[in-house]
Computed example of a mutant assay.
Amino acid sequence: MLEKQRQQLIVELLEENTYASVIMLCEQLNASEATIRRDLIKLANSKKIKKIRGGAEVLAASEKPARKISGSAFLASKERYTDIKRSIAQKAVELCADNESIIINGGSSTYMMAEFLRHRKMNILTNSFVLAQELLENSENQITLPGGEIYRKQSIILSSFDNDTTQNYHGSKMFMGTPGISEFGVMETDPLLIRAEQKLRKRAEKLIVLADSSKIGVKGNLIFSALADVDMVITDSLADGSTLDAFEKAGIKVVIVDGE
Score class of each variant (00 low, 15 high):
residue 81 Y to F: 03
residue 187 M to D: 02
residue 255 V to D: 01
residue 34 A to N: 13
residue 134 E to Q: 10
residue 242 S to I: 08
residue 186 V to A: 09
residue 40 L to P: 03
residue 170 H to K: 09
residue 176 M to K: 13
residue 198 Q to T: 02
residue 155 S to D: 10
residue 150 I to F: 10
residue 33 E to C: 13
residue 49 I to L: 06
residue 144 T to P: 08
residue 38 R to Q: 11
residue 83 D to T: 08
residue 56 A to W: 10
residue 198 Q to I: 04
residue 102 I to P: 05
residue 140 E to K: 15
residue 60 A to Y: 00
residue 260 E to V: 04
residue 181 I to H: 03
residue 16 E to T: 15
residue 67 R to C: 04
residue 116 F to N: 04
residue 172 S to D: 13
residue 25 L to I: 10
residue 122 M to W: 02
residue 143 I to Q: 05
residue 18 T to V: 10
residue 221 N to H: 06
residue 83 D to C: 06
residue 139 S to T: 11
residue 224 F to Y: 08
residue 122 M to K: 13
residue 217 G to F: 02
residue 185 G to N: 09
residue 242 S to Y: 08
residue 78 K to T: 08
residue 103 I to A: 07
residue 221 N to K: 10
residue 200 L to R: 05
residue 83 D to G: 02
residue 21 S to H: 11
residue 110 T to G: 06
residue 204 A to W: 00
residue 206 K to G: 00
residue 217 G to I: 04
residue 73 A to I: 01
residue 150 I to R: 15
residue 100 E to L: 13
residue 196 A to S: 08
residue 257 V to M: 04
residue 68 K to E: 03
residue 53 R to L: 01
residue 4 K to L: 11
residue 110 T to E: 09
residue 254 V to I: 03
residue 162 D to V: 07
residue 13 L to C: 04
residue 13 L to R: 07
residue 101 S to A: 15
residue 30 N to E: 09
residue 92 A to H: 01
residue 4 K to A: 14
residue 12 E to M: 14
residue 86 R to D: 01
residue 215 K to F: 00
residue 61 A to T: 07
residue 70 S to C: 07
residue 177 G to I: 08
residue 36 I to E: 05
residue 105 N to R: 11
residue 163 N to M: 11
residue 23 I to D: 07
residue 192 L to F: 04
residue 185 G to Y: 12
residue 125 L to G: 07
residue 100 E to H: 06
residue 257 V to G: 00
residue 128 S to D: 09
residue 171 G to W: 10
residue 50 K to D: 02
residue 187 M to T: 12
residue 104 I to A: 04
residue 42 K to D: 08
residue 16 E to N: 15
residue 125 L to W: 11
residue 161 F to G: 02
residue 156 I to L: 12
residue 233 V to H: 00
residue 57 E to V: 10
residue 102 I to N: 11
residue 26 C to V: 15
residue 130 V to T: 12
residue 90 Q to D: 11
residue 160 S to Q: 13
residue 181 I to M: 02
residue 141 N to M: 14
residue 92 A to M: 02
residue 245 D to H: 03
residue 4 K to E: 15
residue 22 V to A: 14
residue 247 F to G: 00
residue 38 R to G: 06
residue 229 D to N: 14
residue 216 I to T: 00
residue 12 E to C: 12
residue 162 D to N: 08
residue 85 K to N: 01
residue 11 V to T: 06
residue 20 A to E: 10
residue 14 L to Q: 12
residue 23 I to T: 10
residue 124 I to P: 05
residue 207 L to M: 06
residue 72 S to L: 03
residue 136 L to C: 10
residue 196 A to P: 03
residue 74 F to D: 01
residue 202 K to F: 02
residue 196 A to H: 06
residue 215 K to D: 00
residue 64 K to S: 07
residue 1 M to V: 07
residue 183 E to F: 03
residue 78 K to H: 09
residue 43 L to H: 13
residue 138 N to L: 11
residue 62 S to D: 08
residue 68 K to C: 03
residue 3 E to S: 11
residue 232 M to V: 02
residue 248 E to W: 00
residue 4 K to Y: 14
residue 2 L to C: 07
residue 233 V to W: 01
residue 30 N to T: 09
residue 125 L to H: 10
residue 3 E to N: 11
